[in-house]
């Protein structure tokens, strides 16, 4: 091979990159996908892999090639070429990485915006973390007593906003199949939204070291058809019914929470689900 060294490296590097990218895409990195955002995030991850592999290959190709080609023969005490720099080359390797990371940052931003965009017909679930269990509350329209549950059940294809709180220390509410998590922080309410769109049972994991029982703080989420969810909710409500004869009237602050645009951390505990229920209320048994 009497080729130009750059051409040689280019061929080797391209082949290695292609093999590396194929391998990177063939590996099943993540748990099952349970939401649209999971697909977006996995695609983003794949793109990052596709960009990363050639960069790693580039570094390795030059390093290995240099070590092989320029290795000192035994007894060689000569000096290397007296090269102190090359402005053009340096401009190139400042500019290109800058462009690559800018593009990736922009893409990341777009995906972030997508997965956090408010959705119509959103239901709210209040999530509470404590050592070492999660509990869930389904606020009911019309100020009715919220439905409590230790099991997370979600209707498929229905956007859900999790309002997340912690009672003692920091936990982190993570559903790997949704690819989303948020810390549960004492004193503040955090939130994220997701639309589960594949039925199934997935893990709910605490991702923030929260003490001795941290590893056992695992529950599951069942994503079920809308009707099954409705009947499950009704059943939960009946079980809790004897205690709840609460006033059905509209809360005084209901008008204060305008429906729609912003789900961010309502300051009061009073769930404002009633405002969201307009389009979905028909499918739920109003208690």
């Amino acid at each position: 091979m009497r080729k130009h060294p750059l051409a040689q490296m280019l061929v080797i590097g391209t082949i290695a990159s292609i093999l590396g990218v194929i391998l990177a895409l063939a590996i099943d990195w993540f748990p099952p996908q349970g939401s649209a955002s999971a697909r977006d995030i996995d695609t983003l991850y794949d793109v990052l892999m596709i960009v990363s592999v050639p960069i790693f290959v580039l570094v390795m190709t030059v390093a290995i090639y240099s070590v092989v080609k320029f290795r000192a023969r035994p007894g060689d005490q000569s000096d290397g070429a007296p090269i102190h720099g090359n402005t053009k080359l340096e401009v190139v390797w400042v500019t290109i990485p800058f462009l690559i990371v800018s593009a990736l940052a922009f893409y990341g931003w777009v995906v972030l915006d997508d997965i956090e965009r408010p959705q119509p017909n959103t239901m709210v679930v209040d999530v509470t973390g404590q050592q070492f269990a999660w509990s869930f509350e389904y606020p009911q329209p019309g100020g009715a007593e919220p439905v409590q549950s230790n099991e997370l059940v979600l209707p498929v294809n229905r956007p859900v906003d999790f309002n997340i709180q912690a009672l003692d220390v920091i936990h982190s509410f993570w559903v790997p199949a949704f690819r989303l998590k948020s810390d549960a922080v004492p004193g503040i309410e955090t939130t994220y939204r997701v639309t589960p769109d594949v039925e199934g049972t997935y893990d709910v994991v605490c991702a923030e070291l929260c003490g001795l029982g941290h590893a056992t703080m695992r529950q599951s989420v069942r994503v079920v058809p809308e009707e099954e969810f409705t009947s499950w909710l009704a059943q939960r409500k009946e079980e809790a019914a004897p205690a709840a004869g609460a006033a059905q009237g509209t809360g005084p602050d209901e008008g204060a929470a305008p429906s729609g645009e912003d789900q961010q951390a309502p300051p009061s505990d009073q769930p404002e689900a009633g405002t969201e229920g307009a389009s979905s209320g028909g499918s739920e048994p109003v208690g």
Partner: peptide, 9 residues
Amino acid sequence: LATLWRGVI
């Protein structure tokens, strides 16, 4: 990498 290039390694 450029320091390695054309050196006597």
